[in-house]
C-alpha cells in the first residue's frame, strides 16, 4: 500500500522499537515491541500531560518497562469502513457522507485518510493518503446496494490501518448486521487481538445486531456507539476523532513472558483514580 514519508516523530518511535528488538532477540521474530493505545479519563474527561513514569503496564501479570509514551505525536491513519448496503439509503446515506467529510476536515497535517466501502463486495480504496479530497470524493461517489459484508470489511479496514506506521483508527459505520461475509467473525476478532489498530464503531441498527461490533471494539479498546437515528452522526464521528487524539500510545518490549498465546494486559496510571481504557490483551506466537 501507498506509504507516505514518515514524520520525524514516527522515525523516533520506529528507532526505539527497533532498538528494543535488538536487545531482546528472543522476541525479534515473534513478539515485537507492543504498542498499546490508552485512553485515560477522569470523571469522563481525558487526562493529558502524562509521562512514561505515570504508567504501569502488566503483561500476563508481569510488570513491564515502558519504552515510550507518546501523545499527539504520531500522525493518524483514519480508515473509514462504511456500510453501503441496500439498507443505507436516503437520510442515512447523506448523514454518513457528511460525517465522513467532518472527520476529513478535522485531520491535521501528516494525518492520512483511507476508505473501505462495502456491501457484498469490499472495495478497498482510496488507500491511506494525505489527500483528503481524494477520500472525500470517493465517499461522495458511493452508491448503496446489496447485502452487508461487515466482517470482511472490518478485517480489510484493520489491514489498511496497520499498513502504515502511524496510529491506526478504524471508524466502522454499519447497521450492524452481517449478511454476506466470507471470513468468520471469530477469525477476524482473533486478528483484532493481534492488531495495533483501534476500532470505533457506530451502529445504526438494533443493539441485538451489534454483537460483532461490540466484540471488535472491545478487543481493540475502541468504542461502540449505538444510534437510533443518524442525525447526529457527524458529531459522533468528531467525538471519535477527538477521543482518539486524546489517547496515549504506550510502547514496551515484552520480557519475562511467554512468546505464545494470549497475553492479558493491565494498564494503570499511578496515583490517580482514573479510568483507563486499553486493549484487554494481545495474541502472540506467530501473532502481532
Amino acid at each position: 500500500m501507498i506509504r507516505r514519508a514518515l514524520a520525524l516523530t514516527t522515525l523516533v518511535f520506529a528507532a526505539v522499537a527497533l532498538a528494543a528488538q535488538a536487545q531482546n532477540p528472543t522476541f525479534s521474530s515473534k513478539i515485537e515491541a507492543v504498542r498499546v493505545d490508552v485512553l485515560v479519563a477522569d470523571n469522563g474527561r481525558p487526562v493529558r500531560g502524562l509521562q512514561a513514569a505515570d504508567f504501569e503496564i502488566f503483561d500476563n501479570g508481569v510488570r513491564q518497562t515502558i519504552d515510550l509514551v507518546s501523545f499527539e505525536q504520531l500522525p493518524l491513519n483514519v480508515v473509514f469502513t462504511f456500510d453501503l448496503s441496500g439498507s443505507i439509503v436516503g437520510e442515512r446515506l447523506e448523514n454518513l457522507r457528511e460525517a465522513g467529510h467532518a472527520v476529513l476536515g478535522g485531520l491535521k497535517k501528516g494525518d492520512q485518510g483511507g476508505l473501505v466501502s462495502f456491501n457484498d463486495l469490499v472495495v478497498v480504496g482510496p488507500d491511506l493518503t494525505g489527500n483528503t479530497g481524494l477520500v472525500g470524493a470517493a465517499i461522495d461517489r458511493t452508491e448503496p446496494s446489496g447485502n452487508t459484508s461487515l466482517v470482511d470489511a472490518s478485517f480489510a479496514g484493520m489491514m489498511m490501518a496497520e499498513s502504515d506506521v502511524g496510529r491506526g483508527l478504524v471508524i466502522v459505520f454499519s447497521d450492524g448486521l452481517d449478511t454476506s461475509s466470507w471470513l468468520r467473525a471469530r477469525s477476524v476478532l482473533d486478528v483484532a487481538k493481534r492488531s495495533d489498530a483501534v476500532v470505533y464503531a457506530v451502529s445504526a441498527g438494533l443493539a441485538s445486531r451489534a454483537a460483532f461490533l461490540r466484540d471488535l471494539t472491545e478487543q481493540t479498546a475502541g468504542r461502540l456507539f449505538q444510534l437510533e437515528s443518524t442525525k447526529g452522526l457527524s458529531a459522533v464521528f468528531l467525538q471519535v476523532l477527538d477521543e482518539f487524539r486524546q489517547r496515549y500510545l504506550v510502547s514496551y518490549s515484552p520480557s519475562g513472558v511467554s512468546r505464545e498465546g494470549w497475553h492479558e494486559l493491565t494498564v494503570r496510571v499511578k496515583g490517580r483514580n482514573a479510568t483507563v481504557r486499553a486493549r484487554p490483551g494481545y495474541l502472540a506466537g506467530g501473532s502481532m
Binding site: S29, K30, V122, F155, A156, W182, V191, S287, M288
Partner: peptide
C-alpha cells in the same frame, strides 16, 4: 474473487 484473497490475507496475519 475477493473471498480467497481476504482469506489469504487473514491467514498470513494470523501467523504474524
Amino acid at each position: 474473487a475477493q473471498s480467497p484473497r481476504l482469506a489469504l490475507s487473514l491467514l498470513a496475519r494470523e501467523i504474524g
